[in-house]
Design a protein around this nucleic acid. Structure first.
Length: 347
DNA sequence: ACTCCACGGGAAACGCTGGTCG
DNA sequence: CGACCAGCGTTTCCCGTGGAGT
């Protein structure tokens, strides 16, 4: 049933792109100077989740690398690597020179090492760059003449708001590529493409892909997740092809899978907080702290809990409603319908 | 107006890892 | 080898801010 599981992973980069030719062209034009040994201005890819920003960036850079193997590419996801140290480290790693570096190595050491030595061009793709906490890292990278930046974020205004002045003025020039949500027809053909490569022929019908595309409401990541989950379920049941029932089962599954994974990875104390909040449905801070203290042997301070809470809000596990007095925490709603959940987490 | 409460920034304290020096 | 040191991440303490309730 499943022929090639890699194709169904969301980080799979297809060898051909569907529906994003304009964006690819824009980006590769912007990066063209690299082919004549000049440094391009930074490129920006903006758009909501699951519209192919990451995929297109990787795809385009992979092509570029093929044209000119001297151009190296480093992909950094700023969700995980959100400090200056980690970003620099990831870049060094991509150039394969990290052997003797550990946590205790001074930051400047990392920077120096990037600056000297191998000065072949390096393109740094910084994904979710709005999550980067030390934007000074961007300034650092910009100072390196052989490093070019491709920055990926949801919204332009918010991204620039998070920059400090130095960074903002340096990066203001540059190419913007805006990605819009996929229509269901587009999404359906993307899914068809994946199904053709990843599954047995005829394992899934066009109607079924349509159902999945509808459920994913423009988010290719969710769509692919549903397809993968449905295929796995079908396979586990010994089916030769995907059935309506497996799809129905896979839809909620894919929606919460990512979150469940995050929750499992949470440190103990934070998971306790999360459980209290989900159990209660909605809870106010004071009560939350008390419940927490009752449940844990060696409770952390309230201040620390606040740190945890902001982090969990950040991770989209919980949300807080109201300000100051009368604030409440609750698990983030499961956006059952494709309702515009476009609340760009104000701050 | 005044008090209560929660939020979140900043500085200091702590704990861990790995390096270095005698 | 053991005693220190450097540097980072995490936690705590302290505190200013500002809305809500009275």
């Amino acid at each position: 049933m499943i022929v090639d599981g890699r194709v169904l992973r969301e980080d799979f980069v297809p060898s051909e792109v569907v529906h994003r030719h304009d964006e690819v062209n824009l980006l590769s034009e912007a990066l063209e100077p690299l082919l004549s040994d000049r440094r391009p201005d930074p490129s920006f890819l903006f758009g909501p989740t699951g519209v192919g920003k990451t995929c297109i960036a990787r795809y385009t850079l992979a092509q570029l690398h093929e044209q000119d193997p001297d151009v190296r590419v480093a992909y950094v996801n700023c969700w995980q690597e959100y400090t200056r140290f980690r970003v620099l480290y990831s870049l060094l790693e991509a150039t394969g020179r990290t052997t003797d570096i550990h946590r205790s190595t001074a930051k400047d050491e990392l920077f120096d090492r990037l600056a000297e030595g191998d000065t072949r061009p390096l393109v740094a793709i910084l994904d979710e760059v709005d999550q980067l906490e030390e934007t000074a890292a961007l300034y650092d990278l910009h100072r390196l003449p052989h490093v070019s930046l491709v920055l990926i974020a949801n919204r332009e205004e918010e991204l620039f708001a998070s920059f400090d002045d130095r960074v903002r003025s340096r990066l203001h020039a540059g190419t913007r590529v805006q990605f819009d949500r996929y229509g269901t027809a587009e999404l359906r053909s993307i899914l068809r493409e994946r199904a053709t490569q990843g599954l047995e022929p005829d394992a899934v019908t066009t109607d079924q892909l349509q159902t999945i595309a509808d459920a994913a409401s423009g988010d290719a990541r969710v769509g692919i997740g549903i397809l993968r989950s449905a295929a796995r379920r079908a396979e586990r049941n010994g089916c030769e092809y995907v059935t309506e029932a497996t799809i129905a089962a896979a839809i909620p599954d894919a929606r919460t899978a990512i979150r469940r994974k995050t929750v499992e990875g949470l440190p103990d104390h934070q998971r306790v907080l999360y459980e209290i909040i989900t159990d209660a449905g909605e809870i106010e801070p004071g009560e939350l702290y008390e419940a927490y203290e009752r449940r844990v042997a060696e409770p952390k301070t309230a201040r620390t809990l606040r740190n945890y809470l902001t982090k969990m809000v950040h991770y989209d596990l919980i949300e807080s409603v109201g300000e100051h007095r009368g604030r409440r925490y609750r698990p983030v709603a499961d956006g059952d319908e494709g309702e515009e959940s476009e609340l760009p987490t104000e701050k």
